[in-house]
């Protein structure tokens, strides 16, 4: 019997994130998060790490194993206050026969009204969005609330795994979007306009609230129970 090999989602994401000169976070909003970095429950285990960096409020990577049936991966990057960088959001749900993916640079303004922002951060991802429209199982993100915060260039799919090489191929959208994010990060400069800063702050708070609800719903099921109370309760706080 051949042992199944999970795709190295977290390792690949971390490899790229390391370009940010990350500083590990052990506390977040007054709470100790170091203790939640590794957790194991009756039906699974999890690892989550959070970091900060120049121009970045928080970058986090999580890996959750639901028994030996599913590997979940999440990676989030939120810009520091004062910067208009989008939010990087990547979700990975890997099973023996399929991988469900979502990756996006979520806008931090109304990208319909703010045309310069859309052209700078969103439309430049157009070629990647086009490229990954050919992914097998390409489809809109299923969660309505999450889809509603996504940009016009998000990539989502439920990719059937017909041969093992497809697991690695499914990682490409995540790493390619992340590379673009890192390019944007390099050239990001502080926003001077107080009204725009207010808009960004309000939007980031709203996106976090939507994602918090989404994680809460996901963790209310077997995934959360499997993780054990420690990590399950803190996961949203660490990721968002």
């Amino acid at each position: 019997m051949v042992e199944k090999t999970w795709a190295p989602y977290c390792e690949k994401m971390k490899e790229h994130l390391d370009q940010l000169s990350l500083v590990r976070l052990t506390q977040w909003q007054g709470a100790d998060i170091a203790g939640a970095e590794h957790s194991a429950g009756p039906g699974g285990s999890g690892t989550v790490q959070a970091f900060t960096a120049d121009k970045i409020e928080k970058a986090a990577i999580a890996r959750i194993m639901a028994g030996d049936a599913v590997q979940y991966g999440i990676c989030t990057i939120f810009p520091a206050e004062g910067f208009d960088l989008p939010i990087y959001f990547s979700r990975w749900e890997e099973r023996a026969d399929s991988i469900s993916i979502l990756v996006d640079l979520v806008p931090t303004v109304d990208s319909l009204v703010d045309e310069p922002y859309r052209k700078k951060y969103i439309e430049t991802l157009g070629p990647l969005w086009d490229k990954y429209s050919n992914l097998p199982g390409m489809a809109p993100e299923e969660n309505d609330a999450v889809r509603a915060v996504c940009s016009i260039v998000y990539t989502a799919a439920v990719i059937p795994i017909e041969r093992e090489g497809m697991r690695l191929a499914a990682l490409a959208p995540h790493t390619e979007y992340l590379k673009k994010y890192l390019e944007f990060h390099q050239s990001a400069v502080p926003v001077e306009d107080p009204q725009k800063l207010q808009e960004i702050k309000r939007k980031i708070a709203a996106v976090k609230a939507t994602l918090r609800d989404y994680f809460k719903g996901a963790l209310a099921g077997p995934v959360g129970q499997g993780l054990g109370a420690g990590l399950s309760e803190q996961l949203s706080d660490i990721l968002l």
């Binding site: 609330a145 939007k203 709203a206 996106v207 939507t210």
Partner: peptide, 10 residues
């Protein structure tokens, strides 16, 4: 309106 900011609208 921006439905990311106004989920109640959605």
């Amino acid at each position: 309106v921006d439905i990311a900011v106004h989920p109640e609208y959605r």
